[in-house]
């Protein structure tokens, strides 16, 4: 009973936060609501006895990724009004599609198929059950190929990000240390020999 209350609390929080993410006007608020959404889903995972994943979600997403998100959002000059242009025009069509989807999903993914009668509740894990060890074991044995492909995926993401944002040196004004240290005295100072006292130019008498 208590578990159910906790579940509904987290689930309601998740739905509310997710709705706010796409409806609030201020992008910084949207990011903060996303943080709340992540927290709520971490709570749900905790109820499913996936403690390691729940903590990883909080540490990685809330702790690191969302902070970067906030930085990016604050650096960008986002014109929310322009982004929301046409919102009301599309609402009816989008609403109908969303409602149909919801109805179809509700018809199929309901109590009759996923209720406790259809899928019995799995027995609770023993107290000394090692969540982390279990994940580690399958991650590097059974699922090593998908794991490595995911790593390549991240590599491609890095390459693409650099390829798309790196500007050519022509436009950057950063100092180039490797050329600065090569500078010698001859590049900077030029000694010019001059006579100390210049003789007065000869006067040419007018004829």
């Amino acid at each position: 009973m208590f578990e159910q209350l906790v579940f509904y609390a987290f689930a309601a929080g998740l739905l509310f936060a997710a709705t706010m993410v796409i409806t609030v006007r201020n992008p910084v608020h949207a990011v903060l609501f996303l943080v709340v959404a992540f927290f709520a889903s971490a709570g749900l995972w905790m109820l499913l006895e996936a403690e390691f994943l729940a903590i990883a979600l909080v540490l990685v997403y809330v702790g690191a990724v969302m902070v970067l998100f906030l930085f990016v959002v604050m650096m960008l000059d986002i014109n929310v009004a322009a982004l929301r242009e046409g919102f009301s025009t599309y609402v009816p069509a989008a609403g109908i599609v969303a409602f149909l989807m919801l109805a179809a999903i509700g018809l199929v993914v309901g109590h009759q198929h996923f209720g406790l009668g259809a899928v019995p509740q799995p027995p609770a894990a023993a107290a000394d059950y090692q969540n982390t060890a279990q994940i580690g074991r399958v991650l590097y044995t059974q699922y090593v190929l998908p794991f490595e492909v995911a790593a390549v995926l991240l590599l491609v993401a890095i390459i693409s990000a650099i390829a798309l944002t790196l500007r050519t040196t022509r436009q950057t004004k950063a100092p180039r240390p490797e050329r600065q240290v090569q500078a010698s005295r001859a590049d900077r100072v030029r000694l010019v020999k001059m006579v100390a006292v210049k003789p007065e130019p000869d006067r040419i008498e007018n004829p």
Binding site: Y143, L145, P146, V149, A150, V152, L153, V156, A157, I159, S160, A163, L164
Partner: peptide, 23 residues
């Protein structure tokens, strides 16, 4: 031969294609 490999292969392909278009 697994739903996971299908998905990751697809993402690897698509991500490279998105950035190729944006190049």
């Amino acid at each position: 031969s697994s739903l996971l490999t299908v998905y990751l292969g697809l993402e690897l392909l698509s991500l490279s294609l998105y950035s190729l278009v944006a190049l």
